[in-house]
Design a protein around this nucleic acid. Structure first.
Lengths: 212, 212
DNA sequence: ATGGTAGTTGACCGGTCGGTAAGTTGGAAA
DNA sequence: TTTCCAACTTACCGACCGGTCAACTACCAT
């Protein structure tokens, strides 16, 4: 009933088209004409619903991040497992996310936020700032998972959760960059488990684990 | 005397301009008109020396990679120090490379090859293939450094140098992505030492080192 | 002096870019 | 039935894209 909940068919089609095309290529390599054609809509309609190409991409990124949180981040990093188990789930969910996106979009997208952060670095735009904010939010998920593990005694009390989360983010972005460059989702499975190695203690043997 | 050694002033200026602009922004965001203006040359001259924008960028990348090898890779990864020392030098040289580029170009470039690999992924062009080749060459430097360390007994004989070099490359690319997104060269110093952590043994204490 | 040639120039090409605005349509409220 | 407005279409804009081309200049070998 709330008017803002009425999502027009055209509006959704435009967001979906922008998502498919921008994830498959890049921001600059996709034009509004192509987005409209892919959505089965004329250009004028795009500018009826969105103030600009930027505004459309901005909203697409918003929905994309929410989906990433719902299907990858929360089910893995916030579950009840110990940290290593959560990491395993994260790698697996991320792998499946890439595979699904590859099937839908036609190209393996890597990390859409990392991609745009690189492409739009030194470009003053609202998109650039939103992308940076999403990357920071992603890092926040990592940091909270680490802090939870510290509280549970799985990691030393002195662990620097801020720096560790940054190193995790760097590793994730680097692995996704290589996966996209190679168009190979399995690269995620092969390289991302190294996230464990970045932790301040070696992989904990079962008999060693517990409060210390 | 050899005719091919006569590098015209114009030619060099075009390569330098392409380097400065493409590193500062991206491939798609820089046009030939802008490159020519930055080089103080008219567009016709560009197409006298280069067959296309692609050909110019291709040659720019070639010289850039040679410089990277000369000033970063070889002095660090191929020196006589133990692996940890070589890694420290690598981090430091890379940090200085970013700072110098930031001073010359105006923007922190991150890894030019990683940037282009992302931007041109799923784009069939000669530039894309050259970029992939340069990334693979970079990984080769890492792998050789690791294999040398194995031969010297600094790492276990069973070390998987191919996979380790891939994880290093991912970490380097990820850190440079974040450094570029933040336009902060110190990010390299803060995050890249994690390369050590990816090695199959914990940081070796001095009294522990030696053949095993 | 003369012809050849590498370098340079400016005008120009078709195509595409993001964006605009006037006009048409259809359905719900009055 | 009339009015009104959101949804949508069509035609168009100026700017810029990578690239072409014929003409011109400067210099060098003959």
């Amino acid at each position: 009933m709330a008017p803002t909940l009425i999502r027009t068919r055209t509006r959704d089609a435009l967001i979906a088209a922008a998502r498919s095309l921008v994830l498959g290529r890049s921001y600059g390599a996709v034009g509004v004409a192509e987005i409209c054609a892919h959505a089965g809509v004329k250009k004028g309609s795009l500018y009826h619903f969105f103030a600009s190409k930027d505004a459309l991409v901005l909203e697409m990124l918003e929905t994309l991040y929410r989906e990433l949180e719902r299907e990858v981040l929360r089910p893995s990093l916030e579950c009840e497992l110990p940290l290593r188990g959560r990491l395993g789930r994260f790698v697996d969910r991320l792998h499946q996310f890439e595979i699904r996106a590859q099937a839908e979009v036609g190209e393996l997208p890597g990390c859409p936020f990392g991609n745009l952060a690189l492409e739009l670095a030194n470009w003053n735009s609202a998109v650039r700032m939103a992308v940076a904010a999403h990357l920071e939010a992603l890092r926040g998920h990592f940091q909270r998972a680490i802090e939870t593990a510290v509280q549970r005694g799985e990691l030393p009390q002195a662990s620097d959760s801020a720096r560790l989360s940054e190193q995790w983010l760097a590793q994730v972005e680097g692995v996704l960059l290589m996966a996209k460059a190679r168009q190979d989702a399995d690269t995620v499975l092969h390289l991302l488990p190294a996230l464990e190695t970045l932790l301040p203690v070696r992989p904990v043997r079962d008999e060693e684990r517990g409060n210390h």
